[in-house]
Simulated assay, not measured.
Amino acid sequence: MAVTLLAHEVSDLCLGKPALRALSVSASIADALSVLRNFEDNFISVWDCEHNKVHESGDAFLCQCVGKICMVDVICYLCKDENLLSPSDALKAPVSVLLPKIPGLVVHVEPSCSLLEAIDLMLEGAQNLVVPIKNRLSTRRKQLQKLSPTSPTSHNGREFCWLTQEDVIRFILSSIGLFSPIPALSIDTLGIISSDIIAVDYDSPASLALEAISRSLIDQTSVAVVDTDGILIGEISPLTLGCCDETVAAAITTLSSGDLMAYIDCGGPPEDLVRVVKDRLKDKGLEGMLEQFNVDSNLLSYLSASSSSDEESMTSTPKLARSGKHSRSMSYSARIVRRAEAIVCHAKSSLVAVMIQAIAHRVNYVWVIEEDCSLVGIVTFSDMLKVFRERLESMT
C-alpha cells in the first residue's frame, strides 16, 4: 500500500488546479496592487522572461517564476518609514523590491516529480512548487495571451499551477489509514510542538510588529498576541491581513497590536478605531497616507452618522471599485472570512485532529496552549510533513 502512495506524482495533486496568474518582474507595485484588488488570487506569481536568450530547446525566450507576492507584502512595504510620507511614490517602485531575498521559496518541478521528492523540497524550504499543467492552450489562446499583470502564466502553450504544503497534507489525509498508528498519537508524543514562535505584546505598537509579520509570512505561520502573563489573546495573521486592502497600512502605523486585531477582524473595523486612525495620521503629519488611501472617505463610511447630514454624506461615499467576481467591502474581502481569533489545540490533541483543524481553517499552523490559555508553542504543516516523511521512508 505504501508503494501505491509513493507512486503518485505531483501531477496527481494538480487535478482541477487553476492556472497561475502572472505578474512580470518589471511591473510596478501599483500594477501588483491592481491585480490583487481585481482578482480573487491571494498570491500572485512573479515571472522573469529573458526575451533575449534562446533556450536549448529552441524556445524564443525563457520564462521562470521567481517568487510570489500578496497584499501583506504591499502593506508591509507601505508601512516602512521612507514610504509613509508619500505612498503614491512608493507604489511606483518595481515589484521586485517586494520579493524576499531568500532563495528556494518557489521551485519549478516537472509533473513527473514524485510525491516523496515534493515533500523533500518543501522540507528544504520550498513554499510553492510550480508545476506545468498538462493540457495545452489552443493556438488562438496562445496568440491572445502575453505575460502581463492580468494574464495567466503561459509559455509555449503551457500553463502552470502550484502546489503548497496544504495540498500535500490534504492528499496525505485522504490516505491517512496507511500511516496508522501515527495519526492517533498526540502531537506531544510525536515531539512536533515547536517553541520557536513569533509573539508580540497586546499593548505594544503594531508598527513594532512589522518585522514579525514579515517573518511569519515567510515562515507561513502567524504572529501571536499575548498579554504580560503569556496568555494567548489572539493573532495577527498574514492570511487575515491578506484579505484586507492597503488601507490597513494606516492602522498598523497608528494602532497597538491589540487594537489592530480588532481592526482587521471580519465585519469591518469598529468606528472608534477608525476615528483613532484618522486622528493619529493627522497628528503624525501623514496627510499623504490619509489622502492616498482615502481614509477620510472610505474608512469613515463604517462610522455611524451622528446627524442626518453626516448620514447622507456617508451613504454617498464611493467604494473601492473592483471588476472581479467578488467585490471588496472597503478593507475587507468577500473571498474568505478569517477572524483575529487564534486557532488552538492542546498538547494531547492527536495529530489527525490537528491536521483537520488546520485544513478546515485554511492555515498552515495551529497554536498549542495550556488549559489556562498560556501559549506553549506551535505545530506547523512542516512539522507534520517531517513525521510523514520519516514514516514513508520506513515503509519502503
Rank of each mutant, 00 (worst) to 15 (best):
L116A: 11
S114P: 03
I172Y: 13
V106I: 12
S214E: 15
V131T: 01
T153A: 14
E166I: 08
L217G: 01
H155R: 07
S204G: 03
Q145A: 02
L163W: 09
V95W: 03
S174P: 01
Y202C: 06
S112G: 06
K101I: 07
S96Y: 05
W162H: 07
E166Y: 05
S180N: 13
H108Q: 11
F179T: 11
P205Y: 07
I213A: 05
I218W: 00
I119L: 05
W162T: 01
V200M: 12
G104W: 02
P149R: 12
E166R: 15
L116W: 11
K92Q: 15
D201F: 04
P152F: 07
L217I: 03
L137T: 00
P94R: 08
V200F: 02
I192E: 02
L210P: 10
L91I: 02
L210V: 15
F160G: 01
P183G: 07
L91W: 08
S204K: 09
N128S: 11
S195D: 12
I172W: 06
S207I: 15
Q145W: 10
S214P: 01
N128C: 07
G104N: 00
L185Y: 10
S195M: 09
L123I: 14
G125L: 08
I213T: 10
P111L: 05
P94N: 08
L190A: 10
V97H: 07
L185F: 11
S180Q: 13
S174A: 13
